[in-house]
Structures are given as structure tokens and as C-alpha cells.
């Protein structure tokens, strides 16, 4: 299965090949690692749906040629 992942904070994209039993967490790790980012600081979405880390590709409803978006999960303090 092939996916496109867009990095929302740079506008860059990657094409990813994966299996139906890969997890959402593995997708986040793969993309974050490619962009030298810490995977724990990001979430990923398909359309308006947040994909949960331990779900498999099948469970998350991801289909061939879907486009996902990697989004930062910031935290502020004072």
C-alpha cells in the first residue's frame, strides 16, 4: 500500500510504502524520523479524523493512495 504524508509545518511531502498491519505509530515514527523530528511531538490525521497510535492501517481505515497530514502538538507555558 502507498500513502502520501504532508508535513503541515513545512509543506513538504513523502511517499510511503507500508503493509496493512503496520500501525499508525509506525507511520508517525517513519515520517518524523525522515524529517528529523521527535515523533512524540506530532499527531497524524486523515481528513478530519485523528488517527490513534496503536491502530493498524486497516483498523484506522487507511486506504491505498490516501493522503495523511503530520501535525505538531505544541505545549506552552509561562
Amino acid at each position: 500500500m502507498k500513502l502520501k504524508i504532508r508535513n503541515a509545518e513545512t509543506g513538504g511531502t513523502v511517499d510511503m510504502e507500508l503493509e496493512a498491519d503496520n500501525t499508525v505509530q509506525e507511520i508517525i515514527e517513519g515520517a518524523a524520523s525522515f524529517w528529523n523530528k521527535e515523533e512524540g511531538a506530532y499527531v497524524i490525521r486523515k481528513g478530519k479524523k485523528l488517527l490513534r497510535g496503536q491502530q493498524t492501517v486497516t483498523e484506522a481505515g487507511i486506504s491505498d493512495n490516501d493522503e495523511l497530514e503530520l501535525i505538531p502538538d505544541p505545549e506552552g507555558g509561562a
Partner: peptide
């Protein structure tokens, strides 16, 4: 052994 996802191509923002 389960294969991890592989990145096959990338593009930067134009």
C-alpha cells in the same frame, strides 16, 4: 518479521 514503513520519495515545498 513485520516490515516497517519505507519512504520511497519526498518533495519540498516550492
Amino acid at each position: 518479521i513485520r516490515r516497517k514503513p519505507i519512504i520511497t520519495a519526498s518533495t519540498d515545498l516550492a
